[in-house]
Design a protein around this nucleic acid. Sequence first.
DNA 1: CTAGTTGCAAAGAGTTTGCATGGCG
DNA 2: CGCCATGCAAACTCTTTGCAACTAG
Lengths: 132, 132
Amino acid sequence: MVYNTEQRTLLLNFLQEHPDTMFSARQIEAAIKNHSISISAVYRNLADLESEGKIKRCSQKGSREVFFQFFDNQSCKNHIHLFCKKCGKISHMENHIADAIINNVEQTNGFEINKGETTIYGICRECHTKEQ
Amino acid sequence: MVYNTEQRTLLLNFLQEHPDTMFSARQIEAAIKNHSISISAVYRNLADLESEGKIKRCSQKGSREVFFQFFDNQSCKNHIHLFCKKCGKISHMENHIADAIINNVEQTNGFEINKGETTIYGICRECHTKEQ
DNA sequence: CTAGTTGCAAAGAGTTTGCATGGCG
DNA sequence: CGCCATGCAAACTCTTTGCAACTAG
């Protein structure tokens, strides 16, 4: 039996409102600070929500912290993710491109890519045009 | 001025001998245990070697530890990496495929992929055939 | 009322740092 | 011999856990 506590709702709502960004437990705690949630409740709910498949756990290159992101089952599970090193936004790679890549790599390297788990690092369009 | 201490040499040699595998600080300490190196010397040397560009820092999905891997400037920097979730081996994606992918994604998503930093997750040929 | 959840504080795990000692050049 | 690096232990950061109080159903 799972209770719908105020904290759990706040947490899931917060991630749901920012489906294209990853947050650490600390960031989440801070973001909903005024509504008050303890850091342990954050971790516990994150763990629960992850095993329910509602959010996903990511790791960041430089950081030691673990990040979490809302996981839209309908769209996220079957997409390769593009993570922008500048702004931290995550976008989805078009699936027809991803499938072409996957076939290509499987044939030449014999490597079976896992879509849901791979994140490609680079610079997104917005940050790239901003730079120039 | 940088001294070539015994520990620094042992550490770099160890990583150099296993260019296709990632190791945590703890694993490295254990691996060259008989020759003796302290965990703090491991961390300090890893940090130095990283900023000298001789090794690279990676993060693993499930783990909280940071992993390091020898970074062959000539071959590694310009390859997308394929990380096998089963055996932990890292291989390189053929560069003509990577370039095709990069162009494709840049045109459709406006996303500029950073080769050296992206690692694709999946199952390698060996582990895949082993399973069946 | 009962069982799951919360907050707090303490415990763990991984990493970093201060300081005296030791070794490279 | 001077300065950098090492080892040890203590400090730090992030995460997990035990427990009593609390709350959703």
